[in-house]
Computed example of a mutant assay.
Amino acid sequence: MLGAGVFAAFAPAARAAGAGLLIGLAVAALVAYCNATSSARLAARYPESGGTYVYGRERLGPFWGYLAGWGFVVGKTASCAAMALTVAAYTLPDAGRPLRTALAVAVVAALTALNYRGVRKSLWLTRLIVTVTLLVLTLAVVAGLTGPAASTANLLPFPGGDAGGILESAGLLFFAFAGYARVATLGEEVRAPERTIPRAIPIALGSTLTVYVAVALAVLIALGPARLAAAADPLAEAAGSWPWLEPVVRAGAAVAALGSLLALVLGVSRTTLAMARDGHLPRALAAVHPRFQVPHHAELAVGVVVAVLIAAVDLRGAIGFSSFAVLAYYAIANASAWTLTRHEGRPPRIVPAVGLLGCVVLAFSLPGGSVLAGSAVLALGAGVWIVRRRVHREPTPRR
């Protein structure tokens, strides 16, 4: 969760709600908690790879599992584009869009090549990246709160946006929480998962939310809503009162985004592999390299699509599209959790109910372009499913 989102999502959120993004952050955290809790209960019931692709299939039917998988692949592919664009925004703050786009595409190409050869983000590297990110964020917060332009008057008017703007900011900030549900997929890898995972989720979300609140207050107090909304690299700009710190923040943002991007390209390609094996995507994407033992066709396809997205959308558009598709994915997760019985470890009914309603409301509160593009891509996925069923005349498996 401490990756590209914390460096990139606050600017578009401020554009939507001003200082009201603080309320949006709380709403996004609540929806994230419900989603993660529902996913944790489902993971305990179905400890398989695939996440909601599996849960939707088992609880709601094959179509909903497929649609969840489709939403995950397209949403996280857009997340990859957003992370690459974040690297470019902080690395080349004064460059024009063509140069930033070229750098972002180069970053994706390099990481795709690393993944192709089986290079993964190890545990020690993850710890190093998180440590560097926390250190950079701490320094940026201190600099922002103590700079000459810092003033609590920058928080006024509060909330600074209407209900629609606050909900839009929540939908955009939901992107910053990406990664929380990975805790819920570790049922086969931890001791006493039925006790450990429900404890780990609120601790992880609470710790991350604490960091996000501190960063949000710092950038608002240092820049004010208007400057924050216009900033391409808000944390670096907020730390500008300490000249030596600005390049450190830029480097830290690049490291955090690169770490997230490396892991995310890996995850998207594996979900693509699973869907290809099940016949929901072209079978060629299920190929595994004989030497490196990686789904090399899927990884190359993901890299190409991410590069195209980088050339077609800006950072705000990538964040909005990603949030819409991933919110649809978690809406299916909450609907699946609702069907669990008490014997199967169902969470309190209020959790999947709030999660499902929250996902739907936040998804359709996003910028209009993101809603239209996301709806069109999900509809395309549903259309592919229908055509494929009719062409192959496959009977729907009984649950």
Score class of each variant (00 low, 15 high):
residue 4 A to Y: 08
residue 18 G to N: 14
residue 19 A to I: 02
residue 21 L to T: 01
residue 31 V to A: 03
residue 47 P to R: 01
residue 49 S to A: 13
residue 63 F to D: 09
residue 65 G to C: 11
residue 70 W to R: 03
residue 74 V to K: 05
residue 90 Y to G: 07
residue 93 P to R: 05
residue 102 A to I: 05
residue 111 L to S: 04
residue 115 N to Y: 02
residue 125 L to R: 09
residue 129 I to F: 11
residue 130 V to Q: 09
residue 136 V to E: 02
residue 137 L to A: 01
residue 141 V to T: 04
residue 152 T to I: 12
residue 153 A to D: 12
residue 162 D to L: 08
residue 164 G to Q: 13
residue 167 L to M: 13
residue 170 A to H: 13
residue 170 A to K: 10
residue 172 L to V: 10
residue 172 L to A: 12
residue 174 F to Q: 03
residue 185 T to R: 08
residue 189 E to N: 04
residue 198 P to D: 05
residue 202 P to M: 13
residue 205 L to G: 09
residue 208 T to W: 13
residue 213 V to W: 15
residue 217 L to W: 07
residue 218 A to Y: 00
residue 220 L to I: 14
residue 222 A to V: 00
residue 237 E to G: 01
residue 254 A to V: 04
residue 255 V to F: 04
residue 259 G to R: 03
residue 261 L to P: 01
residue 261 L to S: 02
residue 267 G to F: 03
residue 274 A to I: 12
residue 299 E to D: 06
residue 303 G to L: 04
residue 309 L to V: 13
residue 310 I to S: 08
residue 311 A to G: 11
residue 323 S to K: 04
residue 325 A to F: 03
residue 337 A to T: 00
residue 343 H to C: 02
residue 351 V to S: 11
residue 356 L to K: 06
residue 356 L to V: 05
residue 368 G to E: 10
residue 371 V to C: 07
residue 376 A to W: 08
residue 382 A to M: 10
residue 396 T to E: 14
residue 399 R to Q: 10
